[in-house]
């Protein structure tokens, strides 16, 4: 599903941030990426969603080489992967329903389909009854669940989440991870960047550790070892 070969990333201001990363992720996997602050995890995510271009190497998602994507192609990539960040990126002036529907509207989906899909994904994250709330009227955990619902509307093959539980308390974090597990059971590949030791240890899935821009360990049923 995801093929990373020989990726390097250099920033003029900070030098070499990612150094010769090789990584292969199969469809349906649930992979956690851990590492100390500043290790380069978010940089890797940025490369995967084509927000940045690698300085060297190749990234392919579902066989599609995205390492040198034209700006006009970026929206199509974004519709095929779900992206979730630590800060809940919702449009403050749109309701829960509208925020989720927006991702479908910009892809030119028909109104009828939008009316069918949005309640469905809101159902998956358990927010059916909050559909007319504005983001400011939701708790942090609820906001993050809206983001997850939005990332699901295109039935993505991959979901990439960068510290989705970073701003949440233990209970809300556990809830979010439960949702990811559920989505993963449907067959969606999940790439989870996290600092949360409990989450990683409890998952007992593949764990990749990055240290100073290098991939230093890759374990099938890993634990949080830092």
């Amino acid at each position: 599903m995801i093929d990373i070969t020989g990726i390097k990333k250099t920033y003029p201001a900070s030098g070499l941030i990612l150094d010769d990363i090789h990584l292969h992720i199969d469809p349906g996997e649930f992979v956690s990426i851990v590492g100390q602050s500043g290790a380069g995890k978010t940089t890797l995510v940025r490369l995967l969603i084509a927000e940045e271009k690698p300085s060297a190497g190749r990234i392919a998602i579902g066989g599609w080489d995205i390492s040198n994507l034209a700006p006009s192609e970026v929206p199509y990539l974004r519709r095929q992967i779900g992206v979730i960040f630590q800060d809940f990126k919702l449009l403050p002036k749109k309701t829960v329903f509208e925020n989720v529907a927006f991702a479908l509207e910009v892809a030119g989906e028909r109104r009828l389909r939008i009316r069918a899909v949005v309640p469905q994904v809101l159902g998956i994250v358990g927010l059916q009854d909050k559909r007319n709330h504005y983001p400011a009227e939701l708790s942090g955990g609820e906001q993050q669940r809206v983001v997850i619902a939005r990332s699901l509307v295109h039935r993505p093959k991959v979901i990439i989440a960068d510290e989705p539980t970073g701003n949440l308390d233990t209970i809300n974090a556990a809830e979010v991870i439960e949702i990811f597990k559920k989505i993963n059971e449907f067959g969606t590949t999940i790439l989870l960047v996290t600092h949360n030791r409990d989450v990683v240890n409890q998952l007992r899935r593949r764990v990749i550790t990055i240290e100073r821009g290098r991939l230093i360990s890759d374990e099938k049923h890993g634990k949080y070892v830092l």
Binding site: I49, S72, V74, P75, Y76, L77, R78, R79, V83, K89, L90, L91, F102, A103, V106, A107, R150, H154
Partner: peptide
């Protein structure tokens, strides 16, 4: 705008 880009708006 960054959010709109993120969810694939052209």
């Amino acid at each position: 705008i960054s959010i709109k880009r993120l969810v694939g708006a052209g």
